[in-house]
């Protein structure tokens, strides 16, 4: 059975401001990560593995925890501008989350005008939620029109965090921000909801890449911001297998926890079981023995 590939790119240089990392360094990490993931030497060529020319691409970020612990604008904007200069045009890129206000609080400037990256929330006048709920297994939700209608391809660019209920929140759970009622899906460790949501047409058919922003990782007491349990890791994690990406992210959180003498998520009875459910649904690999991890530095 072919293993799923996950690439981890570490930044060797100490980032002077990990909250606002240097876009040039981020671009180098992105290029290297995606080239390795695609198994090609040219970064531009790598993108054509996942995106068709001229596609509208959504970059779903996570801004729920405010400026201190959200996908950094320097990461998402750098990715967006690069995509916009290679596989598509910048006005076809939408960096988005639930609301304009959450985006602003995370340091983003709302932009809906032509000729530049689009950055806005589902609550923006240009978007909103669809009128009829999508029903699949245990999921019954209205989808953001951004995910369902305005984009053709999707990247989950989530910040990697511990999560008090789900175990971890990463690329899969990031899509909770694409529906109107994520609050209904947090019981039983968000299992099977995280996996089942990803299985819906609007997500599964559009998702192309997971990129985990692990520049800074909240490894305990997440998803809220607690500086005491925040590690500066200077990593980006890449995979086209959304389950494998999160599984590797989970291992990173476990390593950080072990290093600090904290119990494992399993010991705290909050292992992210939704990853196994996702594998059962055929969404990707959740066992490290089925995952090929390539780790490099820049």
């Amino acid at each position: 059975m072919k293993k799923s590939r996950v690439v981890i790119i570490n930044c060797r240089r100490i980032l002077p401001d990990p909250v606002r990392p240097d876009p040039e360094i981020i671009l180098a990490m992105l290029k290297k990560g995606l080239s390795l993931l695609a198994g090609v030497s040219s970064a531009g060529e790598a993108l054509s593995h996942w995106f068709r020319h001229g596609e509208a691409i959504g970059i779903k970020i996570n801004t729920i925890a405010g400026k201190a612990l959200s996908t950094a604008p320097e990461v998402s904007r750098t990715l967006g501008l690069w995509l916009g200069s290679t596989v598509t045009s910048v006005e076809k890129i939408i960096i988005w989350d639930r609301s304009d206000e959450e985006l602003r609080q995370a340091g983003y400037r709302i932009s809906t005008s032509g000729g530049s990256l689009k950055i806005f929330g589902t609550d923006n006048r240009r978007a909103g939620y669809q009128n009829q709920p999508v029903s699949l297994r245990h999921i019954g939700s209205l989808f953001s029109r951004i995910q369902a209608e305005l984009i053709e391809a999707s990247i989950s660019l989530a910040i990697l965090k511990d999560h008090g209920l789900a175990g971890i929140t990463a690329g899969l759970k990031n899509y909770f921000g694409a529906i109107h009622n994520p609050n209904k899906y947090h019981d039983s460790g968000c299992d099977p909801y995280v996996a089942e949501l990803f299985e819906t047409e609007a997500i599964r058919n559009k998702h192309r890449l997971t990129i985990l922003d692990a520049i800074r990782v909240q490894y305990h007491r997440g998803p809220s911001y607690h500086p005491r349990w925040l590690a500066v890791c200077q990593k980006l994690i890449f995979s086209s297998d959304p389950v494998a990406a999160d599984t590797v992210g989970w291992q990173l959180i476990e390593e950080l926890r072990a290093r600090k003498g904290l119990p494992s998520l399993k010991e705290e009875n909050r292992e992210p079981l939704y990853l196994r459910t996702a594998e059962k649904l055929g969404l990707g690999k959740s066992s490290m023995q089925d995952i090929e991890v390539i780790e490099e530095e820049i």
Binding site: I64, A65, G66, G164, L165, N181, N183, K184, H186, D187, R221, G222, P223, S224, Y225, H226
Partner: peptide, 25 residues
Amino acid sequence: PDREIRCDLCPRFCQLGDRERGFCG
């Protein structure tokens, strides 16, 4: 501790971190 709360209004007893909402939304 750590800015978490537990809601005692309904049998769900939602335990929430900072900036989180209960099941009720």
